[in-house]
Write a protein that binds this DNA or RNA. Sequence first.
RNA 1: GGCGCUAUCGUCUAGGGGUUAGGACGUGAGAUUCUCAAUCUUAAAACCCGGGUUCGAUUCCCGGUAGCGCUACCA
Length: 486
Amino acid sequence: MRVRFAPSPTGYLHVGSARTFLFNWLYARHNHGAMVLRLDDTDVERNTEASVQSIFEGLRWLGLDWDEEYRQSERLDLHRKAAEAIFARGLAYRDFTPARAGEDNQSGAQGAWLSNPGMRDLPREESDRRAAAGEPFALRFRVPRGEGRILRFVDAVYGAQSRPADEVEDFALLRSDGNPTYHLASCCDDADLRISHIIRGQDHLTNTFKHLLIFEALGAAAPQFAHLPLLVAPDGAKLSKRKHGPVVSVTTYRDAGFLPQAFVNFLCLLGWSPKNDRDFLALDEIRALFTLEGIHRANAVVNFTEEDPFDAKAVWLNAEHIRALPVEELSRRLEPFFAQAGFHAAPEKIAAVAPLIRERIRLLGEAAAAADFFFVSELAPYDAAELIPLKKGESAGDPALARRVLETAHKVLAETPFEHDALDKALREAAAALGLKAGPMFQPIRVAVCGRKNAPPLFETLMVLGRATCLERIAQAIERLDASPA
RNA sequence: GGCGCUAUCGUCUAGGGGUUAGGACGUGAGAUUCUCAAUCUUAAAACCCGGGUUCGAUUCCCGGUAGCGCUACCA
């Protein structure tokens, strides 16, 4: 059992490509087969080495591996020889018609594949003579006509497919520069590399009939086919960089702080179902559960908007995976995101912070904003009014009360051991002594210490911050209160 | 235009001749907690349309419609 992923390196790794790789990988690993990575770089004009690197980078980030690696550009001899053999067998012919760049024949032209009349039936002597004279030509496959031949294959996802050969155009095998086309190169390599299952996007479903013809001309058995429903944008169009921007690049997800396992989890659910009502899945589980039968046939929409570039389910899955991570690993994942925000802290510090924010972030990229007060030496300015607890329905609180709370807190924190239970007990007792519930007691402290109302649980936060910082910030909060009007 | 593929809540999907059409995300409401988050409960939310087959179709068949794909010397 051998499968392959064959991207053309013309840009970064696309989420659709990533999913195709994933499905191939899952199939290979589930069935103990080989995963082949082949770079289909026959389009010299558009291929770049940078793209090759970004594909590798993306796949490595996903945590998916492969067993063999090839580049089509290094296999051109094979393709040309195959083309010659096909030509020698009379299964292809030279087409001397100049290439028509950008021209389309969607506008009602009947039998567009016959639009180079004469070429198919050009006498061999004339063809040879013109070729010898150096006239450029494309090599076209001579699709059987008028024989009533029906091309058939059974797709593992879409079922039995058939098409009369008469409806297949005489597609090109070789360009006029002598380079193989995708169809030729791809089939040659699939045959040569003994690929047993081709799992690829549904946009190739109709192309498969051409490929059947090529495999036959090559004298090779056709592999099994499984076509995958396409990933589309909310507007229904196939995801594309030009139309949809960076949201189609896996690096965008990575840089925003998706965990690879979460992203893989999200991707696998697009067009495939474990059929067990579960959504949160680890890679091992997915691999164990994966079958081609679980793939369904309709295109899947990846939801995103201008304001919200990530599918809500992807974000939720990421939050779930973040919570499932051991603290040490989460800390390790968080470190670069903190560093990027200018927070360079010791691993122990990050490990102490991580548990406090893990339930409050959905993307690793949100961590810095959620935990800034743990790292900065000086709190960003905040409104003193935040320090003043409000009763329900009240529009203005009592600054004097806030002041009393903070002064009490300062005293309590100066003499209480910075341990969870001790802080809990001491602060609650202080609240009771002031005739306050926990809420109005804790809020001023929280704001004083974090610079904002919404933050992790108070005692844990105080402990991570440490006594000195807490006392200093509470003192500053009191000053702030005094300085503020009203 | 031709050919092909597809069609279940907003989205990802399960299901399948008789079901209260299931789950998840998201959304609303409530509970809970020192805030936020998390968690729990709960609500609203779908079988594209028309024919046929059938005692009975969302499910099977046909047609329509819509979306997508292919129709390149792109892959």
